[in-house]
Amino acid sequence: MSGAAKFDVRAPLGALFVLLGGIIAVAGVMTRNAMPTGLPIALVWGSVMMVFGAVVSAMAWRARK
């Protein structure tokens, strides 16, 4: 990226998904029994989002080195 003061968009993207995934996973644990489909979807999906966020953050971190 040539713009002197610009940053890698992967940094906020990764951080955002780790945070959002965390909120959703915690909400999933707290309301475990309230799921109509019998699947802990919020816990599962929150975790998936956190993993995605972590991978993107790792890519941003590697690119900076």
């Binding site: 713009g3 002197a4 003061a5 610009k6 940053f7 906020p12 951080a15 955002l16 945070l19 959002l20 909120i23 959703i24 915690v26 909400a27 707290m30």
Partner: peptide, 26 residues
């Protein structure tokens, strides 16, 4: 909406505005 929903929404908008603030210098 429940608290968790508001938390998700607030987090997202904090990032949206944060990106604008950080890029201001560029």
């Amino acid at each position: 909406l429940a608290t968790a929903d508001w938390a998700v929404m607030a987090t997202y908008f904090a990032f949206v505005l944060g990106i604008g603030v950080v890029l201001r210098r560029a």
